[in-house]
C-alpha cells in the first residue's frame, strides 16, 4: 500500500469515527431535551426553583465570596443546567480520535504529493475540514461550546463525504501557477477563517432559536427544541458568535491581502475582479456589514445574526458553486 492509499484509508476511517462522534453528540442533545422535559415538569409544581438554583450556581466561583458582598446573577446562564454527561465526553474523545486519523490522512497525502495537501478541491476540503475540527477542539478547551458538536461534526462529515466521493483526484504535480509560498499561506489562512465563520454561523443560528424561545417565555413544556434550554442565553451566544466572526474576519482580511500579493506575482495584477476575487470581496463586505450591524441601533441581536448566517452561506457558495461552475483564473478544483 502506498502512502496515498494509506491517506485514503485514514480519511475513510476518520469519517467512520466522526459518524460515531456525531451520534454521541446527538444523543447528548437528546439527553438534554429529556432533562429539560423533566425540569419542565418540576417547575410546573415547584415554581421556578431550578432557575434560582441555576443562577446562584453560576455566580459561585466567579469571585471571592468571602470578600464580595454582592453576588452577580448571570442573566445569560442556561435556564436548565445540563447534568455532567458521559456520552458528551465520549463524543469529544471520538472527535479527537477522528481528528488524529484525519490529520494522518492529510499528512500522508502531503508527503505522498511532496507538497502541502491543499492544492485541489479534494485536498482543500480535506484540510479545510481538518482545520474546522482543530479550531473546534481548541475553542472547546477554553469555552464550553461542546453543544455545537452535532453541528460541527455533522458539517465536516457532509463536506468530507462529498469531497471523498465526488472530488477525489489522483496526486498530480503542481502546475507552475500554484508553485508558490503563497499557496501555503493564503489557502491555510482562508481555511482557518472558514472554520471560525462556521463556528460563528452555528452560534448565530442557536442565538436566533434561543432568542425566539426567550421571547415566547420560559414555559419549558411548550418548547419544540428542548435542548436549547440547556444552552447559554441568546445575548451570550451572540457575543460568542461575534468573537468567532471577528477573528475570522481578520483572517479573511489577511486572505484577501495575501491573495492580492500572490495574484500580482502570478498574474501580473493584484486585483482583477476574477470570479473568486469577487466572491472573496462579497464575503468580506457582508461580514463588515455584520460588524457594523452590531454597532447600529436596531440591528444588534437577531438582525445582525442573520447577516452572520448570510455571510457563511456566501462562504459555502464560494467554496462549492464558484469553484465548480464559475469560470475564472482560480481553476484549481482539479476536476
Amino acid at each position: 500500500m502506498d502512502l496515498n492509499e494509506l491517506s485514503v484509508l485514514a480519511l475513510w476511517s476518520a469519517m467512520a469515527i466522526y459518524a460515531l462522534a456525531f451520534i454521541a453528540f446527538a444523543i447528548d442533545l437528546a439527553k438534554r431535551s429529556a432533562e429539560v422535559t423533566a425540569a419542565g415538569e418540576l417547575t410546573a409544581s415547584e415554581s421556578s426553583a431550578t432557575k434560582v438554583q441555576a443562577a446562584s450556581d453560576a455566580s459561585v466561583g466567579g469571585s471571592r465570596a468571602s470578600t464580595t458582598t454582592l453576588t452577580r446573577a448571570d442573566p445569560d446562564a442556561p435556564q436548565v443546567q445540563p447534568k455532567r454527561s458521559a456520552v458528551l465526553r465520549v463524543a469529544v474523545a471520538l472527535t479527537v480520535l477522528g481528528f488524529l486519523l484525519h490529520l494522518t490522512a492529510a499528512i500522508t497525502r502531503g508527503v505522498a504529493a511532496e507538497r502541502v495537501p491543499w492544492a485541489n478541491m479534494y485536498e482543500f476540503a480535506m484540510t479545510g475540514t481538518l482545520l474546522i475540527i482543530a479550531t473546534f477542539l481548541v475553542v472547546i478547551a477554553r469555552v464550553d461550546l461542546r453543544f455545537l458538536g452535532t453541528f460541527i461534526v455533522g458539517l465536516v462529515l457532509v463536506l468530507l463525504g462529498i469531497a471523498a466521493v465526488n472530488f477525489y483526484v489522483e496526486i498530480v504535480p503542481l502546475p507552475p501557477a500554484l508553485q508558490s509560498a503563497w499557496l501555503v499561506i493564503h489557502v491555510f489562512v482562508a481555511s482557518t477563517g472558514t472554520a471560525l465563520f462556521a463556528l460563528g454561523f452555528a452560534l448565530s443560528v442557536l442565538q436566533l432559536i434561543q432568542y425566539r424561545r426567550q421571547a415566547i417565555g420560559a414555559d419549558l413544556s411548550k418548547l419544540k427544541l428542548k435542548f436549547v434550554a440547556t444552552l447559554p442565553g441568546s445575548a451570550r451566544l451572540e457575543n460568542l458568535a461575534y468573537r468567532a466572526n471577528i477573528v475570522a474576519f481578520i483572517l479573511w482580511t489577511f486572505t484577501l491581502i495575501a491573495g492580492a500579493i500572490w495574484a500580482e506575482r502570478a498574474w501580473g495584477r493584484y486585483w482583477g475582479w476574477d470570479t473568486k476575487e469577487v466572491w472573496t470581496f462579497i464575503i468580506w463586505v457582508i461580514y463588515a456589514g455584520y460588524i457594523h450591524a452590531r454597532a447600529t441601533r436596531g440591528w444588534r441581536g437577531s438582525r445582525s445574526a442573520w447577516l452572520s448566517i448570510i455571510g457563511f452561506a456566501a462562504v459555502l457558495f464560494n467554496f462549492s458553486v464558484v469553484n465548480l461552475f464559475f469560470k475564472g483564473l482560480h481553476a484549481y478544483s482539479g476536476l
Binding site: W273, T275, V278, W279, F281, I282, V285, I286, A288, G289, H292, A293, T296, G298, W299, L307, V322, F326
Partner: peptide, 18 residues
C-alpha cells in the same frame, strides 16, 4: 444605518459581475 445599508448594497451589486 446608511453605512450598513450601503455596505450590504455593495455586496449585492458585486454579484452580477461574477
Amino acid at each position: 444605518r446608511t453605512a450598513l445599508f450601503l455596505l450590504l448594497l455593495l455586496a449585492v451589486a458585486a454579484v452580477p459581475g461574477s
